Amino acid sequence: MALRLTLLAASRSASVLDARFADSRPLDPAGWHEVRRAKPALSYLAAAELRYCSPSARCRETAISLGLAPLAQPALRDCDMGRWNGFTLQQVTAREPRAVNAWMADPRMTPHGGESLVAFIQRIGAWLDTRPVGDGGWVVAVIEPGVLRAALCYALKAPPHAYWHIDVQPLAAATLSGRAGEWSLSLQT
Rank of each mutant, 00 (worst) to 15 (best):
A46W: 14
H112W: 07
T175S: 14
W84I: 10
F120K: 08
R179Y: 14
V140T: 11
L117P: 03
K39G: 14
L176K: 08
S13F: 01
R98P: 12
V118L: 12
I64L: 13
Q188M: 11
G136H: 12
T175I: 07
E144N: 13
G114T: 06
R95Y: 06
S24F: 03
A126P: 11
C153S: 00
F21M: 03
S56C: 07
Y154Q: 01
Q90P: 00
M81A: 05
A141S: 15
Q73I: 09
L27F: 09
S177I: 14
A94R: 07
A155N: 04
A30Y: 05
H112A: 13
A158Q: 14
R77E: 01
Q122A: 11
L17R: 13
E49P: 11
M81C: 02
A30N: 08
T130R: 15
A72H: 00
P111T: 00
L3G: 02
E96R: 12
V142K: 05
R25A: 08
A19Y: 07
T175W: 07
E144R: 01
V147W: 04
I166E: 04
R51L: 14
T6G: 07
L187K: 11
S13E: 03
S43Q: 14
A2C: 07
R98W: 13
Q91L: 01
G125M: 06
V147L: 07
L76H: 01
W84Y: 01
F21I: 10
G31N: 09
V118S: 06
D23I: 11
W103A: 04
A10G: 13
Q122Y: 08
A48I: 15
S116K: 09
S65D: 06
L117K: 10
F87T: 05
G114H: 08
A99S: 15
Y44W: 14
A174F: 03
A48Q: 11
M81N: 00
P107Y: 03
P107I: 13
G113F: 12
N101W: 12
G86V: 02
P97H: 04
L5C: 00
T175N: 05
L66V: 01
R95Q: 12
